[in-house]
Design a protein around this nucleic acid. Structure first.
Length: 423
RNA sequence: GGAGAGAUGGCUGAGCGGUCGAAAGCGCCCGCCUCGAAAGCGGGUAGGCGCAUGACGCGCCUCUCGGGUUCGAAUCCCGAUCUCUCCGCCA
């Protein structure tokens, strides 16, 4: 959500932002409602002021005089009630529109769709294989690490079981990423994966993303698609102290995504699935553009450290405007090399929001001078598994189908160096 | 899941339908005192919205939330939510 006063003063910028992000927002309608709202507020408040004054008088009056004053106020009160009801309607529609207004992308974000993404860094060189390459599905089958057919039998399409070293590897990468960030001073948090609508709206997933979220109607709860939701909402409706910022949180959660509208896309293997685990970085910092940029660079570097430590070739892209979320100001993706795809696949996503989420969440802080401001929020993946296992299995495979365990993960697998076929 | 109790400012806790945005205490901040500190004394200490913005400011709303009664509600009525206690169940 943006500051209404800012929208009022920069309508063209907002319209352009919507165009760049390929979003449809009726800015003119919003501005008209804004005017209407303030007009109504003035009228209602004038009536209330009059009423309040009369009310004080009535308390002291007696007899005839009192009866007459009461009769007058009855009318004023009725009129006020009418206006207040209209005001409420106007505010409801204004709020509805306000929730759709996008953040303008940063000036250095390329304009356009996915094809306009800009690769800013590449690390590592994809291996040349001197034997027939297996993709992760074949490797997992050979090594008995993933059971997709039974996942489908029990839970449906895009579900799976991880087993044996597959399961261990899954927990190993998560724990490795977690440990890495805790070492860097992040506060580890295990979070709710079912949240109220407010948390989904507060982080900007609703309205608009309802069809991507699993819903529990009986309790009016939603399964989160990322721990970002639970972590950002953690301090909702709070006023933090400036000297306790920035806050660095690393959350761990299962993530659930309906993947509606992706029928036939990425159907092989465990690339696109309904349930996975993710270690997520969330930063809450001061309302300062420079600080936000620094923090984004920081959490981006953290993610790259993790992928580098795993020895996986990857590249970093700046995501173009049309591929950005409504609230995002700038987004980096890490795409990791997946030999089976013969290309890079998205494994990490790092977003800067300024105060877009904080406004929706009513997440604020008090400056040393006593001023109250909205915080800035940022988030980035640390590791998402099992998708990252695709890269690990495929990049580390050997001619006989065995897979070398990346060195940094070995301590989490009891020192295991190679995962070998079960005869 | 069943039964009961309760939700007031950062916290504790008063509050007759008008004089209550709200007593008192604690905490915190600023002064005085002191070599310094404690104690003591004095003062200050919620958020949102609208108008005005050179500054001081003025008005409206908020006593969990939503609705109702009333000229007027923290106080009365209804509903929701949450918390606590007891029972049952349970990883």
């Amino acid at each position: 959500m943006l500051d209404l006063a800012y929208i009022r003063e920069h309508p063209e910028e907002i319209k352009q932002a919507a165009a760049k992000k390929r979003l449809d927002v009726d800015v003119d309608r919003l501005l008209a409602l804004d005017v209407e709202r303030r007009t109504l507020i003035k009228e209602v408040e004038a009536l209330r002021a009059k009423k309040n004054a009369a009310s004080d008088r009535i308390a002291k009056l007696v007899g005839e005089e009192k009866a007459r004053a009461i009769a007058e106020m009855r009318e004023a009160s009725a009129r006020e009630k009418e206006l207040a009801a209209t005001l409420k309607e106007v505010e409801a529609e204004l709020e509805r529109l306000l929730l759709l207004v996008p953040s303008p992308p940063a000036p250095d974000v390329p304009e356009g769709d996915e094809s306009a993404n800009v690769v800013i860094r590449t690390w590592g060189t994809p291996r040349e294989f001197d034997f027939p390459l297996r993709d992760h599905v074949e490797l997992a089958e050979l090594l008995d690490l993933i059971d997709i057919p039974r996942g489908v039998k029990v839970a449906g399409t895009r579900f799976y079981y991880l087993k044996n070293e597959g399961a261990l590897l899954h927990w190993a990468v998560c724990r490795f990423a977690l440990d890495h960030l805790v070492r860097k001073g992040f506060t580890p948090i295990y979070v709710p994966v079912l949240v109220k609508r407010e948390a989904m709206v507060g982080t900007g997933y609703f309205p608009g993303g309802e069809e991507q979220a699993y819903k529990i109607p009986e309790d009016d709860l939603f399964l989160v698609g990322t721990a970002e939701v639970s972590l950002c909402a953690y301090h909702a409706d709070e006023i933090l102290a400036e000297d306790e910022l920035p806050r660095h949180y690393v959350g761990y959660s299962s993530c659930f995504r309906r993947e509606a509208g992706t029928y036939g896309k990425d159907t092989r293997g465990i690339y696109r699935i309904h349930q996975f685990d993710k270690v997520e970085q969330v930063v809450i910092c001061r309302n300062d553009v420079e600080e936000s940029i620094r923090e984004q660079d920081f959490i981006q570097e953290n993610a790259e450290e993790i992928v580098r430590a795993l020895g996986l070739p990857h590249r970093v892209v700046v995501v173009a405007t049309a591929e950005m979320g409504q609230g995002q100001v700038k987004k980096y993706d890490i795409e990791t090399w997946m030999p089976g795809r013969g290309g890079y696949g998205e494994t990490h996503s790092c977003s800067r929001f300024y105060d877009f989420q904080a406004r929706r969440l009513n997440l604020r802080y008090r400056t040393k001078e006593g001023e109250i401001k909205f915080c800035h929020t940022l988030n980035n993946t640390a590791i998402a598994s099992p998708r990252i296992l695709i890269a690990i299995l495929e990049n580390y495979q050997q001619a006989d189908g065995s897979v070398v365990v990346p060195e940094v993960l070995r301590p989490y697998l009891g020192g295991m160096e190679v995962i070998r076929p079960k005869r």
